[in-house]
Design a protein around this nucleic acid. Structure first.
Lengths: 347, 347
DNA sequence: CCTCCTCGTGGAATCGATTACACGTCCATG
DNA sequence: CATGGACGTGTAATCGATTCCACGAGGAGG
């Protein structure tokens, strides 16, 4: 593969001049410029990003460590992150943590070794020493969706509280009183927050959230299946299961179907995270929708702000309830479109 | 960030010795080794992968240009690729082409500039000059799922022909005679092959495939919606729609539902690519399943073979039919598990 | 006509690693 | 006791870019 030296030789100039042409530095004569460009064309030369990065100490690359790519929510997040990054002139390297702290660390380490310019993380746990050190050492970093309390890193996320309150109101209105939740890992903010929001909303209606009605999941389908099975084995099973993410909702659906039971007649189901398939499931699933695309884009903008030395902004967007038929009662109208930002605050 | 020089200074040895310790070269004294390791620990030193890559001319990174991450089939492919690559000591950089040739080229170019060791591509089109040049120039490369005819690059894919034949047999057995297909772009092999397989299978039953029953899609949901609408507007609409991928099947479902019609009573539906959600759609969708995970792993193994100078192997695996209820008639039993490789051949 | 500035250019240092080569020690062998 | 090989180590070249500095040519101004 041709290097800058070959181009310089071909064009009859020094490597310095070639470099200047390539980075369109002002002081290059028209003559030199055309000769260099011709040589570049003739040799099919492409600058070596590795060498350039070594010299300039920047890779124009962002790292994204995602909790689980197979989760459609995170897939969409990843996609929007890549799009916005590309628009801003950055590439993205993804790492899939599969909800495993060890894998998460592996990816953070690899990304750091590659000298990415900044790191976008949706932490799977409370933060390994590695990640905490990186944050402390000043690696540009932004948390997206989930975050780690007590770490001074901007957070871009959606606040699901009001939507969860709407959901509980909806369920209560349908006459449901025994409501259960399949929670995510307590070590994740989304794992614990959703339970808290749910509990608080229940309290407003004077409803309890007994321990037996809190299934411990890990954001994966299999755990949704197990938790639902446990609920169904109870002497007094819940009337509604609220899954804290879409994969656990899928698992819940599996479990209900395996017993030959029906949603919502035998048990109602709701989920956090809305995905296109929920429109076509049997029955269509009532869900809390997040402005996923906007979340990804905002996270990239925040990270690039940090990288380029501008003051970073934490961003909190609103989530909203999309009522379908999985809790009883037919859906009334079309769900609203993604609303835009409602609230921005300094971290 | 500490460099190898700092470590050398801290340990009181030369950088050469540090490097030897890090790459566990045999001739280093125990004393030097322990001192270096201590220094590494003390400084929290991590080797700079950028510098290392420049010197060694290898990045231990694979590039994967995927047609569309939002398609669950490709998401799973991406996941398995990353897993196998990690097991073999490589990282993966993903590029999402979104079925757009220009984006595909953008990613190929970026990846090449980064000097990835090898490229895994599921081409969106017939091959841009850029990609063809790269292949010709000897960039280690493997096609996965889709390929470009006439290019000397190993291909890892599933053969859907027998499964499509099974599908047609199934449909014919249910009494369906007017069968339509929503095809992918003709420029992709999977786009044209699936139509061909369908046409041939129909011919075995003496059934025609009129042009009006070939909807032109682009593997995205919206095109499935449009094509289905067109079918439904026909004087004599088809009894079955076979979508060449799962997203177009989703679009078809949308279109049917929008007209207040029902699957399979008003029109039957089948899809290429099986995904977990198809079990829970209304109705569960009959689909051709691919050994996606094995495809991704085999592709990585083939690519690493090329990179490390071993003779590459093209791999063709079998796809299979999973009957559910979207074509009429209840599903009999559980679908079989992923079968393993059936056929390997030199490209 | 001399001086100074601007402009275009090239030489060479640099980024952080790897590695060929040379050198000194020490021990075993003849 | 001399010699040669093995071993551990350091020096320096190298990878492909960017960029500081110096230099020569040419034009403007005094």
């Amino acid at each position: 593969m041709a290097s800058i030296k070959d181009v310089a030789a071909e064009a009859g100039v020094s490597v310095a001049t070639v470099s200047r042409v390539l980075n369109d530095h002002p002081s290059v004569s028209v003559d030199a410029r055309t000769r260099v460009l011709a040589a570049v064309e003739a040799l099919g030369y492409r600058p070596n990003a590795v060498a350039r990065s070594l010299r300039t100490d920047q890779t124009r690359t962002l790292g994204l460590v995602i909790s689980d790519v197979m989760n459609p929510y995170f897939t969409e997040l990843a996609r929007s992150v890549e799009e916005e990054a590309r628009a801003l002139g950055y590439s993205v390297i993804f790492g899939n943590a599969d909800e495993r702290p060890d894998l998460q660390d592996h990816h953070v380490r690899t990304l750091l070794d590659r000298r990415i310019d900044g790191l976008l993380v949706s932490p799977t746990d409370g933060g390994s020493p590695l990640m905490l050190d990186a944050a402390r050492a000043g690696t540009p970093m932004v948390f997206v969706d989930r975050w780690i309390p007590g770490v001074d890193v901007p957070v871009v996320r959606a606040d699901g509280r009001p939507a969860v309150r709407d959901l509980v109101a909806h369920l209560h209105g349908l006459g449901h009183r025994r409501l259960a939740i399949i929670a995510g890992p307590a070590a994740t903010t989304t794992g614990s927050e959703r339970v808290e929001a749910f509990r608080e909303a229940l309290a407003e209606y004077g409803l309890p959230l007994p321990d037996a009605y809190i299934g411990q999941g890990d954001f994966q389908a299999e755990s949704g299946r197990r938790a639902t099975d446990a609920f169904l084995d109870l002497a007094e099973p819940p009337e509604v299961v609220f899954a804290a993410d879409n994969l656990m909702a899928l698992g819940a659906l599996d479990a209900v179907r395996a017993r030959g039971m029906r949603v919502p007649e035998d048990i109602a189901l709701a989920a956090f995270d809305d995905i296109p398939w929920f429109v076509h499931t049997d029955p269509p699933v009532t869900a809390v929708a997040q402005p996923t695309g906007e979340l990804g884009r905002a996270a990239v903008r925040a990270l690039v702000d940090v990288i380029e030395g501008r003051p970073p902004q934490s961003v909190t967007l609103a989530a909203w309830l999309v009522v379908r038929r999985s809790c009883g009662e037919p859906a009334p109208a079309t769900p609203p479109a993604e609303p835009s930002a409602t609230n921005r605050s300094q971290p």
